[in-house]
């Protein structure tokens, strides 16, 4: 996870229209957004990443630094983009009950986990997604959620417990 201040300088330059600076932001946070997208959306993670960074570029003039890591702001945009895509896929795609290939098994396993995550209460889901997918450390998650690190630790534990229960019920 890169430190915040250099990123903030890049963000300010990007806000003024500097695409080179935005390119550096893209490279720094590409993986985090990709992982998040890949967990929730099958096979279209790259498109999701492009959409997230396009929307972020458009919305960047309205971004104001409040001490929260920039990646948390990106995460908020990514949630909307992924949410839209998941709803579209739910309308369009038919998923067979039994996967046809090993890759499909793996993908379904991942999607099963993603589905369990989406069932978590918002405060727990945010902790899990920020920590494991957006590559944020617990203190950064605490900053983003405006709470303490201890509270984040506790929410994480509750989230893991709930996930375990949810996945166990599915088996």
């Amino acid at each position: 996870m890169p430190s915040i201040d250099p990123i903030q300088r890049l963000v300010e330059r990007a806000r003024d229209g500097d695409k080179d600076a935005y390119g550096q932001i893209f490279r720094l946070h590409h993986d985090a957004i990709f992982r998040y997208a890949r967990l929730h959306v099958s096979g279209e993670a790259e498109d999701i990443v492009a959409e997230v960074f396009t929307r972020a570029w458009i919305q960047l003039p309205g971004y104001a630094y409040t001490g929260v890591p920039f990646v948390a702001w990106l995460y908020g945009i990514a949630r909307h983009v992924v949410g839209d895509q998941v709803r579209r896929q739910a309308r369009l795609e038919y998923r067979p009950t039994i996967p046809e290939t090993l890759e499909k098994w793996a993908e379904d396993d991942r999607l099963e986990l993603a589905e369990a995550i989406t069932k978590l209460p918002a405060e727990q889901r945010q902790v899990i997604e920020m920590k494991f997918l957006m590559d944020m450390r617990n203190p950064e998650v605490a900053d983003a959620l405006q709470t303490t690190t201890n509270a984040v630790n506790a929410r994480q534990w509750r989230a893991l417990t709930a996930l375990r229960d949810e996945l166990k019920d599915d088996e």
Binding site: D16, G17, K19, Y22, G23, F26, R27, H30, E46, V49, A50, F53, T54, W57, I58, P61
Partner: peptide, 12 residues
């Protein structure tokens, strides 16, 4: 990926 995205971003 970035090059493709860059060209699609509107100027500001």
């Amino acid at each position: 990926e970035w090059e493709a995205l860059r060209s699609a971003l509107p100027e500001r």
